[in-house]
Design a protein around this nucleic acid. Sequence first.
DNA 1: TCAAGTATACTTGTATACAAGTATTATAAT
DNA 2: ATTATAATACTTGTATACAAGTATACTTGA
Lengths: 241, 241
Amino acid sequence: MAETKEYLYPSKWLSKASAGDRVACELRMRIISGMVESGTILSENTLAADFAVSRSPVREALKILASEHIIRLERMGAVVIGLTEKEIEEIYDVRLLIETFVFERLVRMDTTKLVQELSKILEMMKIAIKYQDADEFSYQDVLFHETIIRAIDHSYMLMIWNNLKPVMESLILVSMRGRFKEKYDDFPRILKNHELYIEAIQSKDRNLMIESLHQNFNDVQGKVEDLWMSQQMLSKGVEQE
Amino acid sequence: MAETKEYLYPSKWLSKASAGDRVACELRMRIISGMVESGTILSENTLAADFAVSRSPVREALKILASEHIIRLERMGAVVIGLTEKEIEEIYDVRLLIETFVFERLVRMDTTKLVQELSKILEMMKIAIKYQDADEFSYQDVLFHETIIRAIDHSYMLMIWNNLKPVMESLILVSMRGRFKEKYDDFPRILKNHELYIEAIQSKDRNLMIESLHQNFNDVQGKVEDLWMSQQMLSKGVEQE
DNA sequence: TCAAGTATACTTGTATACAAGTATTATAAT
DNA sequence: ATTATAATACTTGTATACAAGTATACTTGA
């Protein structure tokens, strides 16, 4: 059994999590970062041994990851699907779909409180950049969009978001960690886009919203791919079971 | 422990299902039909005793239902959320959103094979009506829409559908069973709408699609509510733990 | 060397056991 | 009568045990 040297998922985010959640989060990061390649077959017993837990939490984790569609539960073993370029695009299709729907609701609401909340999160993001804290930045970035979605109080939109969130979170984490090392000058632009987004919500300007949304996605999308590839290259060195 | 007299979920659909799935499906039906009222607190142990299985499958079932947002997992016990009028509307928001997106993709595809498949399903629906088989009709109805969604080969749209499907399925089952008894003359109209839908896909007529889609929803939506209420009334007589 | 059949070692699904924690209830003291 | 404390009976999360089923590998026969 290969000793797991270090964890990809921020341990501070797991303070109250169950063993099942821990395994799910860590495994998800390994899959999305490319450390565990797609096609790999995961066994409950092996994973249980690797993570030093029993099969119960592992089973739970595999169920979670299967519902996120990054693994496929088969008769014998779970097959890693991972994220291809196509699937990353699909994720953004969904985000675009959701957030456009949400915006249509927002324009008919009082958004002053929401705008204030978003501004706060934006400030947090700035500070995260200042201290080069990629994880904190990712957290706030995800929170930013979640806050917008929660604002319309639509349980099924929230359901979709909740299904998408873990994968998004991992994707953003991987992406941001890479950029804090390499492309530090990207961040002013990201912040600008979020500012535009807030402005669009404030002024209820549909076009501005769509524009900043697309910008936001282009920001992440184009770069994630490069990074993801490089991560995959990088992880070729890691020993595989 | 109250003996469970009869099952709401069609047992033939559970031929290869695990005990966890069985519990999930049956419990879902009871919640959505109103037999288990919202606010009820479910305990793993009690459910395990009721369904004569161990806690493992029950835990699995509760996780599934929680991801579908019809129960809420709390520190002690799972609280039944159920479907309010608002949530039923929200489900149709999502369906509208998905299927509109799907249609946009379809108009850029060769849909001859899809149309053929849908026609087959429609014939099946007709036969189900002929033999007054509400369950079979529901099955084909769900399959109809799933077939359309699968056609565009979009894993994340499919993911959303998969999350929505069980609840939809239960909702349609409850609705159709009621209508086979009471409002038998609704069905020609339902069939007509599905025909229109196929026609829209065939001719790639966006307006026709939107129209038939809305019709389809109105068909189910307005009536579901009445039925749901009446079901709730009806189930008041059933003894509750 | 190759085919067929059996045995073995894995797989999942379910049951059960146990530990840690929480609510409730009963008891005791003011 | 009311409040505080302690005991009890629940809760969940995790580990482990076991049964049924499947793939793999090995052995035996030609």
